[in-house]
Design a binder for these strands. Structure first.
Length: 537
RNA sequence: GGCGCCGUCGUCUAUCGGUUAGGACGCAAGAUUCUCAUUCUUGAAAGAGGGGUUCGACUCCCCUAGGCGCUACCA
Protein backbone atom coordinates (compact mmCIF):
# COMPACT_ATOMS: atom_id res chain seq x y z
CA UNK A 1 0.00 0.00 0.00
CA UNK A 2 1.43 3.35 -0.93
CA UNK A 3 1.46 5.89 1.83
CA UNK A 4 -0.74 8.91 1.51
CA UNK A 5 -0.22 11.83 3.82
CA UNK A 6 -1.75 15.26 3.87
CA UNK A 7 -0.98 18.74 5.08
CA UNK A 8 -4.25 20.30 6.21
CA UNK A 9 -3.94 23.93 7.24
CA UNK A 10 -6.90 26.09 8.10
CA UNK A 11 -6.68 29.32 6.15
CA UNK A 12 -6.93 31.73 9.01
CA UNK A 13 -3.65 33.53 8.48
CA UNK A 14 -0.31 33.32 6.77
CA UNK A 15 1.77 30.15 6.86
CA UNK A 16 3.16 29.79 10.36
CA UNK A 17 6.62 28.26 10.72
CA UNK A 18 5.15 25.52 12.88
CA UNK A 19 2.70 24.63 10.14
CA UNK A 20 5.47 24.80 7.60
CA UNK A 21 7.43 22.26 9.58
CA UNK A 22 4.40 20.00 9.75
CA UNK A 23 4.07 20.32 5.99
CA UNK A 24 7.76 19.57 5.60
CA UNK A 25 7.61 16.42 7.73
CA UNK A 26 4.61 15.19 5.78
CA UNK A 27 6.40 15.92 2.55
CA UNK A 28 9.58 14.17 3.65
CA UNK A 29 7.66 11.15 4.81
CA UNK A 30 5.74 10.92 1.56
CA UNK A 31 8.85 11.22 -0.55
CA UNK A 32 10.81 8.87 1.65
CA UNK A 33 8.19 6.18 1.30
CA UNK A 34 7.42 6.87 -2.33
CA UNK A 35 3.92 7.94 -1.37
CA UNK A 36 1.70 10.91 -2.03
CA UNK A 37 1.75 14.28 -0.34
CA UNK A 38 -1.71 15.80 -0.45
CA UNK A 39 -2.98 19.21 0.43
CA UNK A 40 -6.29 19.98 2.03
CA UNK A 41 -7.50 23.42 2.99
CA UNK A 42 -9.67 23.18 6.08
CA UNK A 43 -11.89 26.13 5.45
CA UNK A 44 -14.95 25.05 7.36
CA UNK A 45 -14.75 27.93 9.78
CA UNK A 46 -16.40 30.41 7.46
CA UNK A 47 -16.01 33.27 9.87
CA UNK A 48 -12.24 33.05 10.02
CA UNK A 49 -11.21 31.53 6.72
CA UNK A 50 -10.11 33.84 3.96
CA UNK A 51 -9.08 33.36 0.39
CA UNK A 52 -6.14 35.61 0.92
CA UNK A 53 -4.93 33.34 3.65
CA UNK A 54 -5.22 30.35 1.34
CA UNK A 55 -3.16 32.19 -1.23
CA UNK A 56 -0.58 33.10 1.33
CA UNK A 57 -0.28 29.50 2.49
CA UNK A 58 0.12 28.22 -1.05
CA UNK A 59 2.69 30.89 -1.66
CA UNK A 60 4.59 29.85 1.42
CA UNK A 61 4.57 26.21 0.38
CA UNK A 62 5.69 27.14 -3.08
CA UNK A 63 8.61 29.10 -1.70
CA UNK A 64 9.46 26.14 0.48
CA UNK A 65 9.36 23.96 -2.63
CA UNK A 66 6.97 21.43 -1.13
CA UNK A 67 5.03 20.48 -4.20
CA UNK A 68 1.92 18.48 -3.50
CA UNK A 69 0.36 15.63 -5.45
CA UNK A 70 -3.16 15.52 -6.81
CA UNK A 71 -5.76 18.24 -6.61
CA UNK A 72 -6.06 20.48 -3.59
CA UNK A 73 -9.08 19.50 -1.51
CA UNK A 74 -11.17 22.27 -0.04
CA UNK A 75 -12.93 20.91 2.97
CA UNK A 76 -15.93 23.18 2.56
CA UNK A 77 -16.67 21.43 -0.73
CA UNK A 78 -17.31 18.24 1.20
CA UNK A 79 -19.79 19.64 3.69
CA UNK A 80 -22.65 17.68 2.17
CA UNK A 81 -20.77 14.44 2.58
CA UNK A 82 -20.00 15.32 6.17
CA UNK A 83 -23.68 15.98 6.85
CA UNK A 84 -24.60 12.76 5.18
CA UNK A 85 -22.17 10.87 7.36
CA UNK A 86 -23.60 12.46 10.49
CA UNK A 87 -27.11 11.51 9.42
CA UNK A 88 -25.99 7.99 8.71
CA UNK A 89 -24.60 7.67 12.22
CA UNK A 90 -27.86 9.10 13.54
CA UNK A 91 -29.88 6.56 11.59
CA UNK A 92 -27.71 3.76 12.89
CA UNK A 93 -28.21 4.90 16.44
CA UNK A 94 -24.54 5.76 16.84
CA UNK A 95 -25.36 9.40 17.24
CA UNK A 96 -28.29 11.31 18.63
CA UNK A 97 -30.08 14.61 18.29
CA UNK A 98 -29.38 17.12 20.99
CA UNK A 99 -32.18 19.65 21.27
CA UNK A 100 -30.42 21.70 23.90
CA UNK A 101 -30.63 25.31 22.75
CA UNK A 102 -27.35 26.51 21.41
CA UNK A 103 -25.41 28.58 23.87
CA UNK A 104 -24.56 31.98 22.60
CA UNK A 105 -20.80 31.97 22.63
CA UNK A 106 -19.70 34.49 25.18
CA UNK A 107 -17.61 37.09 23.52
CA UNK A 108 -14.27 37.86 25.06
CA UNK A 109 -11.87 35.19 26.03
CA UNK A 110 -13.34 31.92 24.80
CA UNK A 111 -10.46 29.86 26.14
CA UNK A 112 -10.95 31.14 29.64
CA UNK A 113 -14.68 30.53 29.49
CA UNK A 114 -14.10 26.94 28.41
CA UNK A 115 -11.52 26.42 31.10
CA UNK A 116 -13.89 27.86 33.67
CA UNK A 117 -16.69 25.63 32.57
CA UNK A 118 -14.43 22.61 32.56
CA UNK A 119 -13.19 23.44 36.02
CA UNK A 120 -16.73 23.67 37.29
CA UNK A 121 -17.85 20.33 35.97
CA UNK A 122 -14.50 18.61 35.70
CA UNK A 123 -14.38 16.80 38.97
CA UNK A 124 -17.89 15.48 38.57
CA UNK A 125 -17.07 13.85 35.25
CA UNK A 126 -20.60 13.37 34.12
CA UNK A 127 -20.15 12.97 30.41
CA UNK A 128 -23.28 10.97 29.69
CA UNK A 129 -25.83 13.18 31.32
CA UNK A 130 -27.30 14.66 28.20
CA UNK A 131 -31.10 14.37 28.57
CA UNK A 132 -31.52 13.75 24.85
CA UNK A 133 -29.01 10.92 24.71
CA UNK A 134 -31.62 8.28 25.30
CA UNK A 135 -34.60 9.98 23.77
CA UNK A 136 -36.78 7.53 21.88
CA UNK A 137 -36.43 7.53 18.13
CA UNK A 138 -40.11 8.41 17.79
CA UNK A 139 -39.91 11.46 20.00
CA UNK A 140 -36.62 12.56 18.48
CA UNK A 141 -38.04 12.25 14.96
CA UNK A 142 -41.20 14.03 16.02
CA UNK A 143 -39.42 17.00 17.51
CA UNK A 144 -37.09 17.22 14.53
CA UNK A 145 -40.09 16.96 12.23
CA UNK A 146 -41.69 19.82 14.08
CA UNK A 147 -38.77 21.96 13.11
CA UNK A 148 -37.02 22.11 16.44
CA UNK A 149 -33.31 22.78 15.92
CA UNK A 150 -30.83 20.17 17.07
CA UNK A 151 -27.18 19.34 16.98
CA UNK A 152 -26.00 15.82 16.29
CA UNK A 153 -23.75 14.31 18.90
CA UNK A 154 -21.78 11.11 18.77
CA UNK A 155 -23.09 8.58 21.26
CA UNK A 156 -19.99 7.50 23.13
CA UNK A 157 -20.34 4.18 24.92
CA UNK A 158 -20.59 4.20 28.70
CA UNK A 159 -17.60 2.00 29.33
CA UNK A 160 -14.46 1.16 27.46
CA UNK A 161 -11.55 3.10 26.12
CA UNK A 162 -10.06 4.35 22.91
CA UNK A 163 -6.64 3.14 21.97
CA UNK A 164 -4.22 3.97 19.24
CA UNK A 165 -0.55 3.50 18.62
CA UNK A 166 1.09 6.83 17.92
CA UNK A 167 4.19 6.51 15.78
CA UNK A 168 5.92 9.13 17.90
CA UNK A 169 4.32 9.03 21.35
CA UNK A 170 3.60 5.38 21.52
CA UNK A 171 0.48 3.69 22.81
CA UNK A 172 -2.27 6.09 23.80
CA UNK A 173 -5.28 5.11 25.84
CA UNK A 174 -8.18 7.13 27.05
CA UNK A 175 -11.21 6.06 29.01
CA UNK A 176 -14.53 6.76 27.34
CA UNK A 177 -15.53 8.53 30.52
CA UNK A 178 -12.99 11.22 29.65
CA UNK A 179 -14.53 11.94 26.30
CA UNK A 180 -17.80 13.76 25.98
CA UNK A 181 -20.46 13.07 23.40
CA UNK A 182 -18.88 15.34 20.88
CA UNK A 183 -20.94 17.38 18.48
CA UNK A 184 -20.70 16.18 14.90
CA UNK A 185 -23.10 18.58 13.28
CA UNK A 186 -24.01 21.99 14.57
CA UNK A 187 -27.69 22.89 14.93
CA UNK A 188 -27.35 25.04 11.81
CA UNK A 189 -26.19 21.99 9.90
CA UNK A 190 -22.56 22.97 9.89
CA UNK A 191 -20.17 20.00 10.19
CA UNK A 192 -17.55 20.30 12.88
CA UNK A 193 -13.83 19.78 12.72
CA UNK A 194 -13.47 16.24 14.06
CA UNK A 195 -16.16 14.89 11.77
CA UNK A 196 -14.85 16.73 8.75
CA UNK A 197 -11.28 15.60 9.32
CA UNK A 198 -12.22 11.97 9.69
CA UNK A 199 -14.51 11.99 6.67
CA UNK A 200 -11.95 13.68 4.49
CA UNK A 201 -9.08 11.54 5.64
CA UNK A 202 -11.14 8.48 4.78
CA UNK A 203 -12.21 9.95 1.47
CA UNK A 204 -8.63 10.86 0.59
CA UNK A 205 -7.44 7.44 1.73
CA UNK A 206 -4.92 8.93 4.08
CA UNK A 207 -2.65 6.29 5.58
CA UNK A 208 -0.62 8.45 7.95
CA UNK A 209 -1.78 11.50 9.81
CA UNK A 210 1.26 13.56 10.74
CA UNK A 211 0.30 16.68 12.64
CA UNK A 212 1.01 18.80 15.69
CA UNK A 213 0.94 17.33 19.14
CA UNK A 214 -1.87 19.71 20.08
CA UNK A 215 -4.12 17.16 18.39
CA UNK A 216 -2.96 14.23 20.46
CA UNK A 217 -6.01 14.26 22.74
CA UNK A 218 -8.35 15.13 19.90
CA UNK A 219 -7.27 11.95 18.25
CA UNK A 220 -9.28 9.89 20.70
CA UNK A 221 -12.43 11.62 19.52
CA UNK A 222 -11.51 10.93 15.95
CA UNK A 223 -10.79 7.31 16.70
CA UNK A 224 -14.28 7.14 18.13
CA UNK A 225 -15.69 8.41 14.87
CA UNK A 226 -13.63 5.92 12.88
CA UNK A 227 -15.00 3.17 15.07
CA UNK A 228 -18.58 4.34 14.66
CA UNK A 229 -18.03 4.39 10.94
CA UNK A 230 -16.44 0.98 10.98
CA UNK A 231 -13.31 2.23 9.30
CA UNK A 232 -9.79 1.35 10.31
CA UNK A 233 -8.06 4.52 11.51
CA UNK A 234 -4.82 5.61 9.82
CA UNK A 235 -1.48 5.63 11.59
CA UNK A 236 -1.05 8.75 13.68
CA UNK A 237 2.23 10.51 14.23
CA UNK A 238 2.12 13.59 16.40
CA UNK A 239 4.83 16.17 16.28
CA UNK A 240 6.29 18.13 19.19
CA UNK A 241 5.40 21.78 19.16
CA UNK A 242 7.62 24.72 18.35
CA UNK A 243 7.62 27.14 21.25
CA UNK A 244 8.57 30.77 21.83
CA UNK A 245 11.75 31.54 23.83
CA UNK A 246 9.69 31.70 27.03
CA UNK A 247 8.35 28.24 26.15
CA UNK A 248 4.97 29.75 25.54
CA UNK A 249 2.95 29.59 22.39
CA UNK A 250 4.52 31.03 19.28
CA UNK A 251 1.88 33.36 17.89
CA UNK A 252 1.61 36.22 15.50
CA UNK A 253 -0.22 38.37 17.96
CA UNK A 254 2.53 38.08 20.52
CA UNK A 255 5.60 37.57 18.38
CA UNK A 256 4.80 39.23 15.09
CA UNK A 257 6.57 38.53 11.84
CA UNK A 258 9.17 36.05 13.13
CA UNK A 259 6.59 33.29 12.91
CA UNK A 260 5.58 33.93 9.31
CA UNK A 261 7.23 32.07 6.48
CA UNK A 262 6.99 35.05 4.17
CA UNK A 263 9.19 36.99 6.57
CA UNK A 264 12.07 34.66 5.85
CA UNK A 265 11.53 34.76 2.13
CA UNK A 266 11.44 38.55 2.24
CA UNK A 267 14.47 38.74 4.50
CA UNK A 268 16.60 37.02 1.89
CA UNK A 269 16.61 33.51 3.30
CA UNK A 270 17.17 30.59 1.00
CA UNK A 271 14.32 28.12 1.18
CA UNK A 272 16.82 25.27 1.26
CA UNK A 273 18.56 26.70 4.30
CA UNK A 274 15.42 27.41 6.24
CA UNK A 275 14.04 24.03 5.36
CA UNK A 276 17.23 22.43 6.62
CA UNK A 277 16.90 24.36 9.86
CA UNK A 278 13.25 23.51 10.37
CA UNK A 279 13.83 19.84 9.62
CA UNK A 280 16.20 19.69 12.56
CA UNK A 281 13.64 21.17 14.93
CA UNK A 282 12.05 18.11 16.43
CA UNK A 283 13.74 15.55 14.28
CA UNK A 284 17.22 14.17 13.92
CA UNK A 285 18.87 11.41 11.99
CA UNK A 286 20.85 10.49 15.08
CA UNK A 287 24.15 11.67 13.72
CA UNK A 288 26.43 14.65 13.95
CA UNK A 289 25.53 16.24 10.68
CA UNK A 290 23.93 19.65 10.38
CA UNK A 291 23.74 20.42 6.72
CA UNK A 292 21.33 18.27 4.72
CA UNK A 293 20.26 18.67 1.15
CA UNK A 294 16.61 18.03 0.43
CA UNK A 295 17.64 14.75 -1.15
CA UNK A 296 19.42 13.67 2.01
CA UNK A 297 16.49 14.71 4.17
CA UNK A 298 14.16 12.64 2.04
CA UNK A 299 16.49 9.67 2.23
CA UNK A 300 17.10 9.85 5.95
CA UNK A 301 13.71 10.90 7.22
CA UNK A 302 11.82 8.52 9.40
CA UNK A 303 9.09 8.77 12.00
CA UNK A 304 11.44 7.16 14.52
CA UNK A 305 13.68 10.20 14.44
CA UNK A 306 10.93 12.52 15.61
CA UNK A 307 11.29 13.77 19.17
CA UNK A 308 8.68 13.91 21.85
CA UNK A 309 9.66 17.12 23.57
CA UNK A 310 8.84 20.58 22.32
CA UNK A 311 11.55 22.68 20.71
CA UNK A 312 12.20 26.35 21.37
CA UNK A 313 12.51 28.72 18.45
CA UNK A 314 15.03 31.11 19.89
CA UNK A 315 15.06 34.82 19.15
CA UNK A 316 15.24 38.12 20.91
CA UNK A 317 12.88 41.02 20.44
CA UNK A 318 15.45 43.46 21.82
CA UNK A 319 18.51 42.51 19.83
CA UNK A 320 18.16 43.23 16.10
CA UNK A 321 21.07 40.90 15.40
CA UNK A 322 19.08 38.08 16.89
CA UNK A 323 15.68 38.89 15.47
CA UNK A 324 15.32 35.23 14.60
CA UNK A 325 16.96 32.00 15.69
CA UNK A 326 20.77 32.11 15.65
CA UNK A 327 21.09 28.74 14.09
CA UNK A 328 18.66 29.59 11.32
CA UNK A 329 20.73 32.66 10.52
CA UNK A 330 23.95 30.74 10.64
CA UNK A 331 22.56 28.07 8.41
CA UNK A 332 21.43 30.58 5.84
CA UNK A 333 24.87 32.20 5.82
CA UNK A 334 26.45 28.79 5.56
CA UNK A 335 24.35 27.99 2.52
CA UNK A 336 25.08 31.32 0.90
CA UNK A 337 28.80 31.01 1.24
CA UNK A 338 29.18 27.34 0.42
CA UNK A 339 26.46 26.30 -1.99
CA UNK A 340 27.38 25.74 -5.62
CA UNK A 341 27.50 29.08 -7.39
CA UNK A 342 25.35 27.77 -10.18
CA UNK A 343 22.62 27.14 -7.61
CA UNK A 344 23.07 30.46 -5.89
CA UNK A 345 23.18 32.54 -9.03
CA UNK A 346 19.44 32.50 -9.81
CA UNK A 347 18.67 33.79 -6.34
CA UNK A 348 21.23 36.56 -6.57
CA UNK A 349 19.87 37.44 -9.97
CA UNK A 350 16.38 37.80 -8.57
CA UNK A 351 17.66 39.95 -5.76
CA UNK A 352 19.68 42.19 -8.04
CA UNK A 353 16.79 42.48 -10.45
CA UNK A 354 14.44 43.49 -7.69
CA UNK A 355 16.90 46.19 -6.73
CA UNK A 356 17.44 47.34 -10.30
CA UNK A 357 21.05 46.28 -10.17
CA UNK A 358 20.87 43.56 -12.79
CA UNK A 359 22.42 44.07 -16.20
CA UNK A 360 21.46 42.21 -19.34
CA UNK A 361 25.13 41.45 -19.99
CA UNK A 362 25.15 39.14 -16.99
CA UNK A 363 22.93 36.76 -18.87
CA UNK A 364 25.39 36.28 -21.69
CA UNK A 365 27.33 33.10 -21.45
CA UNK A 366 30.88 33.66 -20.36
CA UNK A 367 33.81 32.30 -22.27
CA UNK A 368 35.54 30.61 -19.44
CA UNK A 369 32.58 29.35 -17.53
CA UNK A 370 31.04 26.07 -18.15
CA UNK A 371 28.37 24.15 -16.41
CA UNK A 372 30.09 23.58 -13.15
CA UNK A 373 30.90 26.73 -11.31
CA UNK A 374 30.89 25.23 -7.91
CA UNK A 375 33.66 26.97 -6.10
CA UNK A 376 33.59 25.04 -2.89
CA UNK A 377 35.22 22.01 -4.35
CA UNK A 378 37.87 24.01 -6.07
CA UNK A 379 39.23 26.51 -3.63
CA UNK A 380 42.73 27.63 -4.30
CA UNK A 381 45.30 28.24 -1.58
CA UNK A 382 44.15 31.83 -1.27
CA UNK A 383 40.57 30.78 -0.81
CA UNK A 384 39.61 31.84 -4.30
CA UNK A 385 37.87 29.56 -6.71
CA UNK A 386 40.33 27.98 -9.03
CA UNK A 387 37.78 26.74 -11.47
CA UNK A 388 36.93 30.25 -12.49
CA UNK A 389 39.14 31.65 -15.17
CA UNK A 390 40.08 35.14 -14.23
CA UNK A 391 40.88 36.36 -17.69
CA UNK A 392 39.28 37.86 -19.50
CA UNK A 393 37.28 39.27 -16.67
CA UNK A 394 35.67 42.28 -18.05
CA UNK A 395 33.67 44.27 -15.57
CA UNK A 396 30.00 43.81 -16.30
CA UNK A 397 30.38 40.41 -17.92
CA UNK A 398 28.85 37.21 -16.66
CA UNK A 399 32.25 35.90 -15.69
CA UNK A 400 32.88 39.01 -13.72
CA UNK A 401 29.53 38.72 -12.00
CA UNK A 402 30.13 35.18 -10.88
CA UNK A 403 33.60 35.95 -9.69
CA UNK A 404 32.33 38.94 -7.78
CA UNK A 405 29.46 37.06 -6.17
CA UNK A 406 31.84 34.41 -5.01
CA UNK A 407 34.17 37.04 -3.61
CA UNK A 408 31.60 38.96 -1.62
CA UNK A 409 29.37 36.13 -0.49
CA UNK A 410 31.98 34.99 1.98
CA UNK A 411 30.80 37.57 4.46
CA UNK A 412 27.12 37.71 3.62
CA UNK A 413 24.26 36.29 5.62
CA UNK A 414 21.25 36.76 3.41
CA UNK A 415 20.38 37.33 -0.21
CA UNK A 416 19.53 40.90 0.74
CA UNK A 417 23.18 41.60 1.43
CA UNK A 418 23.95 41.38 -2.28
CA UNK A 419 21.89 44.46 -2.96
CA UNK A 420 22.66 46.35 0.23
CA UNK A 421 26.20 45.73 1.41
CA UNK A 422 27.18 44.64 -2.05
CA UNK A 423 25.59 47.55 -3.84
CA UNK A 424 28.84 49.36 -4.72
CA UNK A 425 29.98 46.43 -6.82
CA UNK A 426 26.97 46.70 -9.07
CA UNK A 427 26.16 50.37 -9.17
CA UNK A 428 27.63 53.84 -9.05
CA UNK A 429 24.76 54.90 -6.87
CA UNK A 430 25.78 53.78 -3.41
CA UNK A 431 25.92 55.44 -0.01
CA UNK A 432 28.88 56.17 2.20
CA UNK A 433 28.76 54.96 5.74
CA UNK A 434 29.56 57.96 7.99
CA UNK A 435 31.35 55.72 10.46
CA UNK A 436 33.56 54.37 7.69
CA UNK A 437 34.37 57.90 6.53
CA UNK A 438 35.28 58.94 10.05
CA UNK A 439 37.38 55.89 10.71
CA UNK A 440 39.18 55.57 7.40
CA UNK A 441 39.20 58.99 5.76
CA UNK A 442 38.84 62.07 7.96
CA UNK A 443 41.15 60.56 10.53
CA UNK A 444 43.91 60.70 7.93
CA UNK A 445 43.68 64.08 6.14
CA UNK A 446 46.70 63.22 3.99
CA UNK A 447 44.55 60.74 2.15
CA UNK A 448 42.58 63.53 0.56
CA UNK A 449 45.39 64.33 -1.87
CA UNK A 450 46.96 60.89 -1.74
CA UNK A 451 44.07 58.83 -3.02
CA UNK A 452 43.55 60.86 -6.22
CA UNK A 453 47.30 60.64 -6.58
CA UNK A 454 47.05 56.87 -6.29
CA UNK A 455 44.46 57.01 -9.03
CA UNK A 456 46.97 58.82 -11.22
CA UNK A 457 49.55 56.20 -10.44
CA UNK A 458 47.14 53.45 -11.39
CA UNK A 459 46.32 55.22 -14.59
CA UNK A 460 50.00 55.60 -15.43
CA UNK A 461 50.71 51.94 -14.68
CA UNK A 462 47.63 50.26 -16.03
CA UNK A 463 45.89 52.73 -18.25
CA UNK A 464 45.32 52.13 -21.91
CA UNK A 465 47.49 55.09 -22.72
CA UNK A 466 50.15 54.19 -20.23
CA UNK A 467 53.39 55.76 -21.14
CA UNK A 468 55.74 53.45 -19.30
CA UNK A 469 54.37 50.01 -19.73
CA UNK A 470 51.05 48.29 -20.07
CA UNK A 471 50.43 46.04 -17.15
CA UNK A 472 47.34 44.08 -16.40
CA UNK A 473 45.16 45.43 -13.64
CA UNK A 474 45.48 42.31 -11.52
CA UNK A 475 45.95 41.75 -7.83
CA UNK A 476 49.58 40.95 -8.14
CA UNK A 477 50.41 44.07 -10.11
CA UNK A 478 48.13 46.24 -8.03
CA UNK A 479 49.88 45.07 -4.90
CA UNK A 480 53.26 46.14 -6.25
CA UNK A 481 51.99 49.57 -7.13
CA UNK A 482 50.17 50.15 -3.86
CA UNK A 483 53.11 48.95 -1.79
CA UNK A 484 55.49 51.22 -3.58
CA UNK A 485 53.08 54.09 -3.19
CA UNK A 486 52.73 53.39 0.52
CA UNK A 487 56.47 53.36 1.03
CA UNK A 488 56.86 56.63 -0.80
CA UNK A 489 54.34 58.23 1.48
CA UNK A 490 55.91 56.70 4.55
CA UNK A 491 52.61 55.44 5.84
CA UNK A 492 51.04 52.09 6.65
CA UNK A 493 49.49 49.88 4.06
CA UNK A 494 46.31 49.73 6.11
CA UNK A 495 45.80 53.45 5.93
CA UNK A 496 45.87 53.47 2.17
CA UNK A 497 43.87 50.28 1.80
CA UNK A 498 41.10 51.26 4.16
CA UNK A 499 40.88 54.76 2.76
CA UNK A 500 40.53 53.28 -0.69
CA UNK A 501 38.03 50.76 0.59
CA UNK A 502 35.78 53.47 1.86
CA UNK A 503 35.93 55.43 -1.38
CA UNK A 504 35.46 52.35 -3.53
CA UNK A 505 32.75 50.58 -1.60
CA UNK A 506 31.30 53.11 0.82
CA UNK A 507 31.83 50.86 3.80
CA UNK A 508 34.60 49.90 6.21
CA UNK A 509 34.39 46.18 5.70
CA UNK A 510 34.79 43.89 2.76
CA UNK A 511 37.09 41.47 0.99
CA UNK A 512 40.80 41.94 0.56
CA UNK A 513 41.34 45.33 -1.06
CA UNK A 514 43.47 43.85 -3.81
CA UNK A 515 40.46 41.81 -4.84
CA UNK A 516 38.22 44.81 -4.50
CA UNK A 517 40.40 46.97 -6.74
CA UNK A 518 40.42 44.26 -9.33
CA UNK A 519 36.73 43.55 -9.21
CA UNK A 520 35.71 47.17 -9.27
CA UNK A 521 37.90 47.53 -12.33
CA UNK A 522 40.36 50.21 -13.33
CA UNK A 523 37.88 52.64 -14.75
CA UNK A 524 35.63 52.73 -11.73
CA UNK A 525 38.59 52.66 -9.36
CA UNK A 526 40.02 55.80 -10.90
CA UNK A 527 36.67 57.54 -10.79
CA UNK A 528 35.97 56.66 -7.20
CA UNK A 529 39.44 57.45 -5.90
CA UNK A 530 39.19 60.88 -7.43
CA UNK A 531 35.68 61.58 -6.29
CA UNK A 532 35.29 64.17 -3.59
CA UNK A 533 31.77 63.11 -2.66
CA UNK A 534 32.72 61.11 0.38
CA UNK A 535 35.09 63.81 1.61
CA UNK A 536 32.41 66.43 1.36
CA UNK A 537 29.68 64.47 2.99
C1' G B 1 -10.10 21.49 38.12
C1' G B 2 -9.81 16.81 34.99
C1' C B 3 -7.14 14.03 31.41
C1' G B 4 -2.79 13.56 28.62
C1' C B 5 2.26 14.68 26.93
C1' C B 6 7.30 16.15 28.05
C1' G B 7 12.41 16.58 30.70
C1' U B 8 20.74 16.23 28.53
C1' C B 9 24.96 22.73 28.02
C1' G B 10 21.47 29.45 27.08
C1' U B 11 19.24 27.11 22.27
C1' C B 12 18.89 22.72 18.63
C1' U B 13 20.49 17.90 19.70
C1' A B 14 23.72 12.62 20.11
C1' U B 15 23.43 8.72 23.79
C1' C B 16 18.74 3.36 22.92
C1' G B 17 22.48 0.35 31.37
C1' G B 18 29.05 0.72 31.53
C1' U B 19 31.31 7.34 27.42
C1' U B 20 36.66 11.94 30.25
C1' A B 21 28.19 12.70 28.51
C1' G B 22 29.63 13.94 21.86
C1' G B 23 28.27 17.63 17.97
C1' A B 24 26.07 22.35 16.22
C1' C B 25 24.52 27.53 17.06
C1' G B 26 25.60 31.38 20.27
C1' C B 27 29.32 33.24 23.76
C1' A B 28 34.72 34.01 25.30
C1' A B 29 40.04 33.83 24.16
C1' G B 30 43.95 33.15 20.68
C1' A B 31 46.08 32.63 15.57
C1' U B 32 45.70 34.95 10.58
C1' U B 33 44.95 40.00 8.31
C1' C B 34 44.67 46.21 4.84
C1' U B 35 39.09 46.20 7.53
C1' C B 36 35.21 42.98 8.53
C1' A B 37 33.85 38.21 7.85
C1' U B 38 35.40 33.51 6.83
C1' U B 39 38.86 29.83 8.45
C1' C B 40 41.74 27.38 12.31
C1' U B 41 42.87 26.41 17.60
C1' U B 42 41.23 26.64 22.51
C1' G B 43 37.76 27.56 26.52
C1' A B 44 33.37 28.10 29.65
C1' A B 45 28.65 25.55 29.44
C1' A B 46 24.07 20.04 30.73
C1' G B 47 21.37 14.89 32.67
C1' A B 48 14.92 19.25 37.45
C1' G B 49 14.67 17.11 42.69
C1' G B 50 13.82 12.70 45.59
C1' G B 51 13.23 7.58 45.96
C1' G B 52 13.81 2.76 43.99
C1' U B 53 15.57 -1.60 40.32
C1' U B 54 20.69 -3.03 39.13
C1' C B 55 27.36 -5.01 40.08
C1' G B 56 26.47 -0.34 37.49
C1' A B 57 21.89 4.51 35.73
C1' C B 58 21.14 10.49 31.78
C1' U B 59 19.18 5.87 30.07
C1' C B 60 14.20 1.37 33.36
C1' C B 61 10.13 2.16 37.46
C1' C B 62 7.65 5.40 41.14
C1' C B 63 6.81 10.18 43.57
C1' U B 64 7.23 15.53 43.84
C1' A B 65 7.88 20.11 41.64
C1' G B 66 7.77 22.25 36.73
C1' G B 67 6.64 23.15 31.47
C1' C B 68 3.28 22.18 27.55
C1' G B 69 -1.32 20.41 25.29
C1' C B 70 -6.47 19.22 25.27
C1' U B 71 -10.83 19.98 27.83
C1' A B 72 -16.13 24.60 22.21
C1' C B 73 -22.57 23.72 18.37
C1' C B 74 -13.30 26.77 16.90
C1' A B 75 -9.84 24.48 13.84
Amino acid sequence: MTTRVRFAPSPTGYLHIGSARTALFNYLYARNTGGKFLLRIEDTDLARSTEESTRSILEGLAWFELDHDEEIVFQSDNADKHRETARKLLAEGKAYRDFTPRETPSDGNVKDAIKERARAQGSEKIMRDNPYRDLSTEESDARAGAGEPFAIRLKVAETGKTTFEDAVYGRQERDYAETEDLVLLRSDGHPLYNLAVVCDDIEMQITHVIRGQDHLTNTHKQVLIYEALGVMPPTFAHLPLIMAPNKGKLSKRKHGEVVSMTTYRDAGFLAAAFRNYLALLGWSAGEEQEIYSLKELVEKFSLDGIHRSNAVFNFSENDPRKWTDDKAQWMNAEYIRTMPLSDLLPFVKAELKASKLWREEYDEEGVALTSDISSTANLGPDGRPESIALEPREVGSRDWLIYTIDLIRQRFFTLKDFSSQGRAYFSEDFDFDPAAIAKNLTKFPDLKPWLPELANRFEREFGADATTSIKAYTEENIETVVKTFTEEKGTNLGVIMNGARTLLTGVAVGPSMLSVFEVIGLERTLMRLRSQVAWNS
